[in-house]
Design a protein around this nucleic acid. Structure first.
Lengths: 205, 205
DNA sequence: AGGCTTGCTGACCGATGAGTCAGCAAGTAT
DNA sequence: ATACTTGCTGACTCATCGGTCAGCAAGCCT
């Protein structure tokens, strides 16, 4: 008895295709990724792919969104829900979240954004509006909460929340580029946080 | 009188071609860059380009090397030549050097390395051996000089000199990606250095 | 001037890959 | 069973681009 050559599953297809596309884009980059390989990995014909995504670029955008959107929601939620002091939040949930990033799909997205950003300005815009600026605003809010509490002094960190996450981006990129060179990214991020907290608290430890 | 259609200038060609290639790779990335466009910008035929560079990939490697090698030499030289204390060197020549990076050709090279690194492992190796690891070793040496001097306490920064340059990489990438969003990269780098020095000196300023 | 070397040109080739479409077959209604 | 809808296939087209090569001409001899 011949099994059917395929099953109709219109509900599942888009998700399967973006998942496959994520892997292909991750290892090849945008330009070198082949639409046909995406289709093959998704167990689908190239023609079908084009029924769900109008062009390769549309597919690319869908992939970025599919990785990024759920993360944002998770982060926002965890902050709202927390009753911790600023320092405890930074040492706890924040640190945990941020230590995951270098090994997560977000790292891949960051690489793709750096590599392809210049030719996909609307994607950069989307990323800025939904990830980068919101993340920075969140950190700034946290720092200001600490200042209001009396936990922290007022420092440049309020105006430049970027100072909090520089080692995270460094770790992401270092791992991406120099996989072979060992770097204890956890220690990097933790040491930086120690330094930062000491600075904001105004003690010399 | 008909001007000659071209002049023979075999000495100048390689440099002219890599310079043109730098611009094209910078704005298109590797895969989307067209060899013919490089040739056109260099005022040369595609055929000639292939007399000097065997393949597109060779050309790419030559471009990276041409930007990176002179910088290395300049940095090494300036460190050797200096008699300053560790702190003064960091506040002076080091800071100056590092503030230039986000707007320099090195920024472009960093983008290209991130984007194309995975498919050019020997280039990554070259970059690691000649730039990244040497730069890190230099910073570590500087910090240790400060410790030996009694200027600095012994901290994690000795083992993780990466902590010194995280804001530089951040600034490079931020500028590359979000050109439209203002960020005072000088202030970012300076503030980080203040924090770092306070930490290493063990004071709370 | 005539001949020789070689820097240089640009038309060409072959491969590759994005996107299309005519038609097939899985599922559904009758 | 039969007819119908539509998810799905894969062979095809057409443009693009890396790389080649036969030959042209600039500059240098003599």
């Amino acid at each position: 008895m011949a099994r059917p050559r395929y099953r109709r599953r219109p509900e599942d297809r888009p998700g399967e295709i973006t998942a496959a596309a994520f892997h292909v884009f991750a290892e090849k980059g945008y330009a070198a990724a082949r639409v046909e390989e995406v289709a093959r990995r998704a167990g689908v014909s190239k023609g079908l792919l084009y029924l769900y995504f109008r062009t390769k670029e549309e597919l690319f955008k869908a992939v970025i969104r599919s990785v990024v959107v759920p993360r944002i929601d998770a982060l926002s939620a965890s902050i709202e829900a927390s009753e911790l002091s600023a320092e405890d939040f930074l040492r706890g949930p924040f640190l945990e979240f941020v230590k995951e990033l270098p090994g997560s799909p977000v790292a891949v997205v960051i690489r793709l954004m750096i590599a392809e950003g210049p030719r996909h300005p609307d994607l950069v815009r989307f990323y800025w509006d939904n990830v980068a600026s919101r993340g920075l605003a969140t950190i700034r809010g946290l720092v200001e909460r600490g200042v209001a509490n009396g936990e922290f002094r007022r420092t440049r960190v309020t105006e430049l929340p970027h100072l909090v996450i520089t080692p995270v981006l460094f770790a992401v990129i270092f791992r991406l580029l120099f996989e072979k060179e060992p770097l204890d990214t956890d220690a990097l991020i933790e040491s930086h946080l120690e330094m930062l907290l000491a600075h904001m608290k105004g003690v010399s430890a």
